[in-house]
Simulated assay, not measured.
Amino acid sequence: MVSTAFSDVLESVREVGTSRFSAANVAHVMGLQFQDLAELAKVHRNTLRTHPESPRLQSALRDLMRVLSAAAAVQPDPQRAIFLIKNEPIPAFRHKTLLQLVQEGRTEDAIAYLESISAGFVG
């Protein structure tokens, strides 16, 4: 079940009047610089502003929100869930963070890890 706090976060990152994510809002919520978000999405920094509909950018933003959704099941407080994604080194992944896994294109691994944690397994 998706928490109310996560659904509020999800709505806050939507680009008003569209069905896509706002890169600026995602960067703000996640506490990321535009350059860092662009690197995560593997797009030029200007793409965030000039081509927010870019399929590559939207896919990366969607992956980030998927990981945040999975993290919300482990840590319902959105700020703590974001901290977990950005900062907690995971021994099972050579001490990389979940954000680093997403940047490497390993979103499914990040989500599987979070689902195992929420089920009671320790990674």
Results as ranks from 00 to 15, higher is better:
9 V>E: 04
99 L>M: 07
24 A>Q: 09
27 A>I: 00
92 A>D: 09
120 G>V: 03
52 P>Y: 01
16 V>F: 15
109 D>Q: 13
118 S>F: 03
56 R>E: 09
114 L>C: 06
13 V>F: 05
93 F>C: 00
70 A>P: 00
24 A>T: 10
90 I>G: 01
103 Q>M: 10
83 F>W: 15
82 I>D: 11
111 I>Y: 01
81 A>W: 06
23 A>L: 06
47 T>E: 01
31 G>E: 06
83 F>Y: 13
54 S>L: 01
53 E>P: 04
106 R>C: 01
45 R>C: 03
51 H>Y: 12
48 L>K: 04
72 A>V: 00
41 A>V: 00
1 M>N: 10
106 R>N: 07
39 E>G: 15
60 A>T: 13
73 A>I: 13
101 L>Q: 03
77 D>T: 08
76 P>G: 04
98 L>E: 10
100 Q>T: 14
87 N>D: 04
110 A>E: 00
21 F>T: 06
52 P>G: 13
83 F>E: 04
9 V>D: 13
109 D>P: 02
8 D>T: 11
60 A>M: 08
12 S>N: 12
64 L>Y: 07
2 V>D: 14
31 G>M: 00
29 V>P: 01
122 V>T: 13
116 S>P: 04
50 T>K: 13
18 T>C: 02
104 E>Y: 02
64 L>N: 00
111 I>H: 07
68 L>Y: 03
57 L>C: 07
103 Q>Y: 02
12 S>L: 00
82 I>R: 05
80 R>H: 12
119 A>K: 07
93 F>Q: 05
119 A>C: 10
117 I>A: 08
113 Y>E: 12
43 V>G: 03
109 D>A: 09
110 A>R: 00
112 A>K: 11
123 G>N: 04
4 T>E: 07
96 K>V: 05
9 V>F: 01
47 T>G: 01
51 H>L: 15
12 S>R: 11
13 V>G: 01
78 P>E: 07
101 L>S: 05
37 L>Q: 05
73 A>N: 09
101 L>R: 03
36 D>Y: 09
77 D>G: 02
38 A>S: 06
28 H>Y: 14
58 Q>E: 02
77 D>V: 13
27 A>H: 00
112 A>V: 12
13 V>S: 03
22 S>L: 06
115 E>C: 10
121 F>T: 09
94 R>L: 14
69 S>Y: 07
61 L>P: 01
49 R>M: 10
99 L>G: 03
21 F>N: 05
45 R>W: 03
105 G>V: 08
57 L>I: 06
84 L>N: 05
89 P>K: 07
55 P>F: 04
109 D>E: 13
